[in-house]
Write a protein that binds this DNA or RNA. Structure first.
Lengths: 232, 232
DNA sequence: CGCGGCTTTGATGTTCATCAAGTAAAGTGG
DNA sequence: CCACTTTACTTGATGAACATCAAAGCCGCG
C-alpha cells in the first residue's frame, strides 16, 4: 500500500514554498515544516476515502490523482484528475468535516500533509496567506467547473478527443503516453459507458487519428483530434 | 432597468451581519457599511456581464439570480440558480480579474456590493474573517458541483423532476409556484432541449404528477416526483 | 489454474436531438 | 391602439446517438 513516509524534504526548499508559502512568517514556516508529513503512494493506493474525517490540508507534490465519488449501486463518478499544483487540498477542507469524495493515486505520487489545525491557525493570523489560499481555491474550483461544463456540451467523440488531448497536452506533454486510467475510468470521468469509450477509441484508430497498444496511446493527427474536441 | 439604488440598509442591522460579518472589527464594519452599495434589480436585469471587470464583492440579500455563461454560436449554459445566502460573490472573485460568467436577476432582487479592494484589505488584516470566507466559498462551490454531478447522472425525466423539486422545496417551499425561468432556460440549466422540457412537463401533467397553467406549476404527487428524480 | 475484472466487438432497442409546423404571447413601431 | 415582428410554447414525426445486452478473449492475481 503506502510505500514511503517521513519528512524527506524541508519545506524551505520545497517547490511549493514559492507557490503558496512564500510570504509566510519564518516562525510559521518552521511550524509547517516540522508538522508536515510527506507520503508516497503507488497507482491504485487510496489516499482518502469518501467520508473520512478531514484532519490535514494536503497537496500533491508529484504524480497524478483521481478524485471521485460513489453514486448509486456501487457505481463511481470521477470528478477530476489532479496534477501537481492543482490544489486538491482546497476542495472541501473548509466547508466540511469529512471528505465528500475519495482520492486515489493513479501514478506514483508524493503528497504533503499539514495538520489542519495548524493551517487554520496560520490563516487566522496571516491574512495575506488566507487571501492566497482564497485565490488558489477559487482557481481550482473554476477549473474543475469549467472542464465539466465543457464536457457536458460535447458528444461522445468530442469527449474522447478532449480527454486524449488533456493527457497528451496538459499532463504528459507528449504525443505518446500511457493512459493512467482504465477505459472504465475514462467512462466515469466523462459521463459515458465503457463500451462506447472503447468503441470510439477503436474508431479513432481505424481513422488513423491515434495509435493504440493497450494503454499506450499515440496521437497521430492532433489537428483532427482538436477539431473533433471542439465540435461537440 | 435598474430600479433602485442607495444605502438603504445599514450593515449593522443587515441579516448578513451575523452570517458573514459577525466578528468583524467595529472599525472594519463601519468601513464596509459606508462603502457598500445596495442595488435592486427586476427580473431580466443583467447584474454582471461575462467578461466584466470584477471590482466588487457582491452578495444577494433577497431575490433569485441565474448564473450563466456563453457557449458557441449564441447559445447559453446556466450554471446555477442562486438564492439569498448562496455566496454568489465568492465564485471567481479571487481567481480572476473579470467575471467568467454572467449574472441576471430572475426575480426582483436586492444585492449588496462591497468594494473588492476593501474586502481584500480586511481579509489581509483579519484572518478569522478570511477563514469564514474560505468556508463559505468552499461550501458554495461544493453545492454547485454536487448539483451538477447529480444532474449528469439523471435521465431527462429525472432532471425535470429534480428541478421542479428544487423550485418547490428549496426556493419557494410551496406546492404551487410560478416558474421564474422559461422552458428554454430550464433546458439550458439541466442540459437538454427546450422541446423535451416541454414534452416531459406535458407528460407529467398527463400523468397527474403536476398541474400546469403557463408558468404556474402545482405539485400534485410529490412522492412520485421524488421517485422519478431519484431514479435517473 | 481458475476466478474476477478489464477489454473488445456485435446486435438491439431506447432515449433523445432535430426538423417541421403551428399557436400563443409579448414586445415594437407607426 | 393596431399591425407587425419576434420570441416563447407546444405537438408530432423522424433519425441519430447512445445505452444496454450478450458473448468471447485477455490479463493479473491469489
Amino acid at each position: 500500500m503506502m510505500t514511503g513516509m517521513g519528512n524527506i524534504t524541508n519545506c524551505k526548499t520545497c517547490i511549493y514554498r514559492s507557490y503558496l508559502f512564500s510570504n509566510l512568517q519564518p516562525g510559521d514556516l518552521s511550524r509547517v515544516s516540522l508538522s508536515k508529513k510527506e507520503k508516497e503512494y503507488d497507482p491504485g493506493d487510496i489516499i482518502v476515502r469518501q467520508g473520512d474525517k478531514i484532519t490535514s490540508f494536503m497537496y500533491l507534490k508529484s504524480g497524478l490523482l483521481k478524485i471521485s465519488r460513489a453514486i448509486s449501486d456501487g457505481k463511481n463518478q470521477i470528478i477530476s484528475i489532479a496534477r501537481p499544483l492543482d490544489f486538491i487540498g482546497l476542495l472541501n477542507v473548509f466547508s466540511n468535516n469529512s471528505y465528500q469524495f475519495g482520492i486515489t493515486a493513479i501514478e506514483h505520487s508524493t503528497l504533503c500533509f499539514i495538520d489542519l489545525k495548524l493551517m487554520k491557525d496560520i490563516i487566522g493570523k496571516d491574512g495575506h496567506f488566507a487571501l492566497k489560499l482564497l485565490e488558489k481555491m477559487s482557481g481550482m474550483n473554476d477549473m474543475i467547473m469549467h472542464n465539466r461544463l465543457l464536457i457536458d456540451q460535447k458528444n461522445l467523440r468530442g469527449r474522447i478527443a478532449y480527454i486524449l488531448l488533456f493527457f497528451s497536452q496538459d499532463v504528459y506533454k507528449k504525443d505518446k503516453f500511457s493512459l493512467p486510467v482504465s477505459r472504465k475510468e475514462i467512462a466515469e470521468l466523462i459521463n459515458m459507458r465503457t463500451e462506447n469509450v472503447i468503441r470510439i477509441l477503436s474508431e479513432f484508430r481505424r481513422d488513423r487519428i491515434i495509435g493504440i497498444e493497450g494503454k499506450i496511446i499515440r496521437i497521430l493527427d492532433r489537428d483532427k483530434l482538436i477539431r473533433i474536441a471542439e465540435f461537440g
